Computed example of a mutant assay.
Amino acid sequence: MPSSTSLYTTRGFWERLWRMSGNNFVIFAIIAYVIYGSQPQVGASADALVAFYGGHHTRILIAAAVSGLAVLNLLWFAAALRTTLADAGQDGWGAAATASSAAVGGLFLLLIALSAALAYSIAGSGNTTLTSGLNDFAWALVVLSSFPRAMLIMSGSFGLWRAGLISNALFGAGVAVVVLGVLGGTTWVSGGFWAPDGVYSRFVWPILGLLWVVAASRVLARSPATRAGW
């Protein structure tokens, strides 16, 4: 049995551990993206869908497991953000972070489940209509997930700023990311940069979100661990 003075029994150790979850989320998300590869675009041909989901069956399922770890760390990051804001007297923004992270996590898990199901059996069943529909549905989920993602960034940016933990410049950058994130929910053009499977939806907005998580994690790491709830 570890003694009561063990490093692992101190509240500071556990709080610092959970505050690192944002960085872990970013790492797992990047690894999952690299393993998963480039998902077929909206309206892709049956051959392209079968080639991707059927031909990369194992790779997609591995990416699903890694993505699950990413979601787990995202939720821990949001929990650490919430406790930091609550300790600073910003319970409202902390509650908003909890609600939005739950929505983001739920949508991400649904996306992971869709891809895993397509790779596991649906794409190989010969039902190309169902496969195509689910692939397009996944892209629609990516677009609509922009709103809770933007809310999570908004709650963190406003809460940390109101708590005096970030500068006005960082707050302004956070607000800009929120606006750009909300715009991500409007990417419904039939093709090109502003399409559901376009550059903005696939790269620009996700990269901005990951950069915000890294920045917020650094702020959390600098904040004193004052809560005994861990």
Rank of each mutant, 00 (worst) to 15 (best):
V142F: 02
A70M: 15
Y120R: 07
N73Y: 15
L72M: 15
A96C: 08
M151G: 03
A138S: 03
V104I: 13
L72G: 14
R82W: 07
V142M: 03
V34K: 06
G55D: 10
S145F: 07
S155V: 00
L152E: 04
G89T: 05
L61T: 13
L49D: 08
V66E: 15
A119W: 04
A46F: 01
A79S: 11
I122K: 00
L81D: 08
G106R: 07
G43M: 04
S157M: 00
G89H: 01
I60W: 02
G68T: 10
G159E: 10
T131A: 05
L144F: 11
S146Q: 08
A88L: 06
L49G: 03
Q90S: 07
A119L: 09
A78R: 02
M154Y: 15
A103F: 06
A117E: 05
V34Q: 08
T98E: 13
S155C: 08
T58P: 00
F52K: 01
G164L: 07
S145R: 03
A102S: 09
A64L: 02
T131F: 01
A44P: 03
L114F: 12
W139P: 00
L74W: 13
A86S: 10
A88W: 05
Y120S: 12
A95P: 00
H56A: 15
A116N: 07
N168D: 12
S132Y: 01
L152T: 03
L165Q: 03
L107K: 04
L75E: 12
G55K: 11
S155W: 04
L75A: 13
L49S: 09
A32F: 15
S100H: 07
A99M: 13
A116I: 02
G68I: 09
P148T: 05
L75M: 15
S125C: 10
T83N: 05
A32S: 15
H57N: 12
L134V: 14
A113W: 14
P148L: 04
G92V: 14
R82G: 03
A44L: 07
S67I: 06
S125I: 12
V104E: 14
A51P: 03
L74H: 15
A102C: 04
L118W: 04
I166R: 00
F52M: 01
V42L: 09
N135T: 13
T84I: 05
I35E: 06
L110A: 13
A169C: 00
L144C: 08
Y120I: 02
G55S: 10
H56D: 13
F52Q: 05
A65T: 13
A96G: 12
S45F: 13
W93R: 06
L141D: 10
W76M: 12
G124S: 14
L74Q: 12
L49R: 09
D47Y: 02
A80M: 11
G92L: 05
G37F: 11
V50C: 02
L61R: 15
S146D: 00
A140D: 09
A48G: 06
I153F: 01
S121P: 07
T131C: 01
T58K: 06
S38R: 11
L111C: 09
V42D: 04
V50D: 08
S145T: 08
V143D: 00
T84F: 04
I112L: 14
F137Y: 11
V142H: 01
V50I: 12
N127K: 07
Q41C: 02
G164M: 07
F137C: 02
H57T: 11
L134H: 04
T128M: 11
